[in-house]
């Protein structure tokens, strides 16, 4: 048996998928693009204002964290908290790769403000994951555009 609400949701889902198809981005592409480059998932879906705000917010947060001499976590340290920090940092996509490549965030954290920087970097990664999942939801029609 199908209720009116279920029919309405199914119609909305189809409409969302149609919009995503019209923009030329599949949900998986939007998710991966959004993870690699902050805001890129929304940009592929034609949401350029949201994409710009996400880019500025996430890159700004990451850059401030690095400027405050926050720590960029590396894998295989054996410490559980370091592993969680690494998972959070990895959410930044290419920003994390760039930081590792250029050797940012490798100095020891000695002052409280640098510890804030570490948190800025981790939270930037986590927010980027949230943004990438939002792009996936928009592309799949789960979230109304």
């Amino acid at each position: 048996m199908t209720t009116k609400v279920q029919v309405s949701a199914a119609v909305d889902g189809k409409t969302g998928s149609r919009d995503a198809a019209a923009s030329g981005a599949s949900p998986v592409v939007a998710l991966v693009a959004g993870w690699l480059v902050p805001g890129a998932g929304h940009l592929l879906l034609g949401k350029w204002v949201r994409a710009a705000l996400l880019l500025v917010s996430i890159v700004g947060m990451f850059a401030i964290g690095v400027a405050l001499q926050g720590k960029v976590y590396t894998p295989n340290t054996g410490e559980p908290l370091d592993m969680l920090g690494f998972a959070g940092d990895l959410g930044s996509g290419v920003l994390y790769g760039l930081a590792r490549l250029l050797g940012w965030g490798q100095a020891p954290v000695l002052v409280a403000v640098a510890d804030y920087g570490t948190k800025f970097i981790v939270v930037a990664g986590l927010l980027n994951i949230v943004a990438a999942v939002d792009a996936h939801s928009l592309a799949s029609g789960r979230k109304r555009p």
Binding site: I58, M61, I64, L68, V113, Y116, K119, L127, V130, A131
Partner: peptide
Amino acid sequence: AVLLFSLFTSIVFGIT
């Protein structure tokens, strides 16, 4: 630091 953290995080929360 509080203001910057709150600003950026709130923007992402609002959009998503």
